[in-house]
Amino acid sequence: MVSWVNQVCATGSQSLPVDFGVVSSGVVCNGIFYVYSETDKLARYDIERGFWIGIQTSPFPPRVIEYYPKLVSCSGRLFMLSVSWCEGDGQIGCRNKAVRKLWELDLMYLAWTEVSVHPDSPMDWNVAFVADINHIFGVEMFKIFGQVLDFLTVCDVSEKRMNWSHISRNHMAHELDATSCMTKSLAILHL
């Protein structure tokens, strides 16, 4: 994705805003290419007209710096998954718990709204998400205590309450090494 952004800029098109930073995530939504930077900035590239626009949103979702947010486009809507610290309801130790949250950007008013919380603790720094029709799928894979664990989850964004469900969980593989968890692919097929 970063190489695609570099190709777009090298073709003579207007470049990203100077202070944008390094692109960490990108997705096409309604014919517009959106990118998010490691410095918490959002920009869009109008594919038909060939120019970049920096987007000021209010507010940017809070996040744990070590986890880069992931943009996802689903049903003509723009979502972001980010990791932040849990806000407690008087729960002891809640400030020490990180959670992955799903945010939606109102494309007209440019405001982020929290719409769901992922059920698993964010153990995978390189989690992959992909959307299909009304569903966002996520695959997490990480090595802990000498075992590689993986989880596959789904969220139906057409429902009023966007809850995540486990499709599979806790598959353990002993023959994989930690580098196998760094990159992963996910594809949705309609059979």
Rank of each mutant, 00 (worst) to 15 (best):
G93M: 07
S82A: 15
V27H: 01
F151C: 07
S82C: 15
G93Q: 09
P122G: 06
F33W: 10
S25Q: 10
V28A: 01
L176C: 05
V99Y: 08
T179W: 07
K101C: 12
S158N: 03
K97W: 03
V115K: 14
S13Y: 02
W125D: 08
V130A: 13
L186W: 06
W164M: 03
G26F: 11
S168F: 11
V115R: 15
F60G: 02
L110A: 05
W103G: 06
E38R: 05
W103T: 01
I47H: 00
L176D: 10
K143H: 05
K70L: 14
R63M: 13
T57I: 10
S168L: 09
F51I: 00
Y34S: 09
G26L: 11
N163G: 10
F151R: 13
T11K: 05
L42P: 03
F20K: 01
V83C: 15
A128D: 11
L105S: 07
P61Y: 13
L152G: 14
A43D: 01
D156A: 06
F129W: 07
S116C: 01
M141Y: 00
I167F: 05
V2F: 13
C9I: 07
S3C: 03
C155E: 03
W85N: 12
V22H: 06
W164V: 01
L186A: 04
L81R: 00
N134V: 09
V27M: 00
L78Y: 10
F151S: 05
I136Q: 01
A131R: 07
Y109I: 11
W85C: 11
Y109V: 15
S158W: 04
A10M: 12
Y34L: 07
G90R: 06
V35T: 05
Y68I: 08
G93H: 07
R44S: 11
G26Y: 01
F151D: 11
L102M: 14
F137A: 02
V157A: 07
S37L: 03
V99I: 13
G12V: 08
F60A: 11
D106H: 13
D40F: 09
G138S: 15
L71T: 02
D132L: 04
D89C: 04
M80T: 10
H166S: 10
E87C: 05
M182L: 12
L16A: 06
Q7S: 05
Y68N: 11
S75N: 09
F151N: 04
